[in-house]
């Protein structure tokens, strides 16, 4: 295959985090852009982490063998859990940059396999959060391939999340990206009827877990999955009691093979990256939201000073 030419700015001159969207159509264009990106990295002595769906990884492996410089990571356990991806990238970069060499990444989400609108929204939000998560960290360069086949509207949403767009081997600033603008969330869907509601305050954590158990058992959710949901729900409710006005409202319902637990309180989560970074052993607190993201299939958070905080925990039901 023909490798594209170098981009206008050589990577060695880059500082900070560089986040590029690579819109492509079909297999050949995917390979052309990604192999070229990898080749540029190898030419400049950089390491590469490839985090793409299995089918894309197989394509790339046939062109670029894995060695000490190019590492393919298995994303199958992470790809559908956007809240876990920033922590994963931090680890991959830390492990691969151990020799002090610059690192590039290729990260593609399984957009054609998203399980819900909520998941698609959270994957886009993850792309937007990446700019904040790595803004102050060591320099590295992430290319995000996106197959545009038949989906122009979604592409436009993604251009708002990426400061740069790569076309024909060259990158240019994304005119849709505004680093000062907040993420443009789609409003949360209404809870499905029938839903259960429970108002909780100090001393109600056991009762809250019982409410969740009652709903979960009707849906066949038990054992480890229920214990994990209990843990996540307790962390959210504890935050409501301690930081969210002393009380909150739990709603539980079932939609599209998922159990949803929604928590509302009057608190405000100022840091959009809360719970996205892996905690250290010595940090004081700050583990609750991290655990929630790690234990739940999908987490939606909406928080403003005016309206308070709404958090939805989605648990996939099997069978």
């Amino acid at each position: 295959m023909t490798l594209p030419s170098h981009p206008d700015t050589p990577p060695s001159a880059q500082t900070g985090y560089r986040h590029e969207l690579y819109p492509y159509t079909g297999r050949d264009e995917f390979l052309q852009g990604t192999v070229g990106f990898i080749q540029e990295a190898l030419d400049d002595g950089e390491a590469v982490v490839v985090a793409v769906p299995q089918d894309k990884a197989s394509l790339l492996r046939s062109e670029v063998p894995e060695d000490g410089t190019v590492r393919f990571v298995d994303t199958s356990a992470l790809a559908h859990h956007p809240g876990r991806l920033i922590g994963a990238w931090q680890e991959w970069i830390r492990e691969h940059a151990a020799g002090g060499r610059p690192v590039r990444g290729i990260g593609e989400s399984p957009w054609d396999q998203v399980q819900s609108q909520a998941q698609a929204e959270q994957l886009r939000y993850h792309e937007w959060l990446l700019n904040k998560a790595f803004a102050d960290g060591p320099a590295w360069w992430l290319l995000c391939p996106y197959d545009t086949t038949g989906d122009g509207a979604a592409l436009q949403q993604l251009t708002r999340c990426h400061p740069q767009i790569r076309t024909g081997g060259r990158s240019a600033p994304s005119t849709d990206y505004d680093p000062q603008a907040p993420f443009d969330f789609v409003p949360l869907s209404h809870p499905c009827d029938p839903y259960e509601e429970f108002i909780y305050t100090n001393g109600d954590l056991p009762a809250l877990r019982e409410k969740i158990s009652a709903c979960a058992e009707q849906l066949g959710l038990a054992d480890r999955r229920l214990r994990e949901l209990h843990l996540a729900a307790t962390e959210i409710a504890t935050n409501s009691i301690r930081h969210g006005g002393g009380h909150g409202t739990l709603r539980t319902w079932h939609e599209d093979q998922r159990m949803v637990c929604e928590f509302r309180d009057s608190g405000f989560i100022a840091d959009p990256l809360a719970g996205r970074h892996r905690p250290t052993s010595t940090q004081v607190g700050g583990r609750g939201l991290w655990l929630v993201h790690q234990l739940c299939d999908l987490v939606e958070i909406r928080s403003t000073p005016d309206t308070g905080t709404t958090i939805r925990l989605h648990t996939q039901l099997t069978g």
């Binding site: 480890r224 214990r227 892996r278 052993s281 940090q283 583990r287 790690q294 234990l295």
Partner: peptide, 19 residues
């Protein structure tokens, strides 16, 4: 301990020699 506690302990960053 159950597997949930062990998983949460590791995820929380506590599974290190200094603890």
């Amino acid at each position: 301990t159950n597997d949930t506690l062990r998983l949460a302990w590791e995820l929380s960053g506590f599974a290190v020699p200094s603890i």
